[in-house]
Design a protein around this nucleic acid. Structure first.
Lengths: 222, 222
DNA sequence: AATATTGTCAAGAGATCACTTGAATACTTG
DNA sequence: CAAGTATTCAAGTGATCTCTTGACAATATT
């Protein structure tokens, strides 16, 4: 059939979206931007790549329509184009977790042994927050907290957790959260708190999932 | 940080799933298998590639966990691993339709001008089927009809539509459906029916979406 | 056992991709 | 306007990807 060429072109164009995500570094970028917009330089630091290379990855994602940009002075901020992109990322992540051979091992290698880290479901955390008997720590970098956080959370970036230890009541029931299920921050926070004898758990996933579930969120420095 | 290596490996492995879909031909395969399992040879014919190349594409999808296989005599049947894979494909398709520049043009080039082809929503079709005042044609190949179809549909593969024209009452309200929103069969059926003076429309998408919406389905030759 | 059918593997050609390096551009500030 | 900062572009290298060709493997039929 002569439709072959047109059909190939159509499906190649569908595949272009997948291609945009078909690089570990770009996947990392999408995961990161799920927390809010970032400048090229910030993204470069987060993904551990040169600025030039990061810029090229961002352009690829932009060209495929997954991102938008905003200029502010000399800086350019990239953000996810919309919620559907976030949904695509989430579904992709779930499929990988379910189907990719060896994925669990890789996750364990990066996140460390999660044996000692107890999990709190979104539903339970929402209930405990309403009751007011839980100390909720947002252990992501401050920029991300400001861009949006769970209502009632305290901004305690992982790097500063040590300094805040004193202000956490010894008998408190602490929950920490970060970017999502494959982010180390909350795990490390929980482990540190445990070592100090504080009862702490981590939220099952992260802020994007909470927002998506239409649970209460807030913005700004606090 | 020394976590860099582990983090890269984790996200590379997430990107592997995207990589599996990052080829137009493999995208076509996933779209096709959404209708039900197929042998290597059948897939090869559908995507217009050699058997050897098709086999390699199928192995890539298999290795990434998106497909499963079943052997029957000398033939090997491939199928989507589960519903989540279908969901991933659907979300990817939607994101492409929404974000990829020029996607609409490519779709029009393949599907032809859809001006004259009126659309029926799933909800309306479901209602009309309950009332029993609609003739519903499944214009996909017979294998796909047998693997699953909308309850109440008649199997009328596009190639055989001409022979069935006589058995369609001139005053009937006809609806045709096929694989999904980017499948040509239903459009072509509607155009043919129009030329014969029959009032016909196409379902907004296809069988997989109908099944996913938990609307009534049936299996087998009728 | 010989033959046919169906699918997989291996090697190779040409295209595309990821990252590096160094230069160019866009904007701000002094 | 000059200098500085943030980003993008262009060229190049080694690796990976797609498709082809031809051989090989597994199963069924005679």
């Amino acid at each position: 059939m002569s439709d072959r060429v047109a059909k190939n072109a159509l499906f190649d164009s569908l595949a272009d979206v997948a291609k945009a995500l078909a690089s570990g570094r770009r996947a990392e970028i999408v995961d990161l931007l799920g927390q809010g917009e970032r400048s090229v330089d910030e993204v470069a630091v987060e993904i551990g790549q040169s600025v030039a290379n990061t810029s090229q990855h961002l352009r690829v994602l932009l060209r495929s329509g997954l991102l938008t940009t905003r200029r502010e002075g000399t800086r350019v901020f990239y953000a996810l184009a919309n919620d559907r992109v976030e949904e695509l990322w989430r579904v992709l992540r779930d499929v990988a977790a379910e189907h990719v051979a060896g994925f669990d091992d890789l996750a364990r290698a990066y996140l460390g042994d999660r044996e000692g880290v107890e999990i709190v479901s979104r539903a339970e955390l929402a209930r405990r927050l309403r009751q007011g008997d839980v100390v909720l720590l947002d252990v992501r970098p401050a920029v991300e907290f400001n861009a949006g956080h769970i209502a009632g959370a305290r901004a305690v970036p992982l790097a500063e957790l040590r300094q805040h230890l004193r202000s956490i009541p010894a008998d408190a029931d602490v929950v920490a959260y970060c970017r999502g299920p494959y982010c180390v921050y909350a795990d490390e926070a929980v482990r540190l708190l445990h070592r100090r004898g504080v009862v702490a758990r981590r939220l099952e996933d992260g802020f994007p999932e909470w927002r998506r579930a239409k649970l209460p969120v807030a913005r700004g420095a606090d």
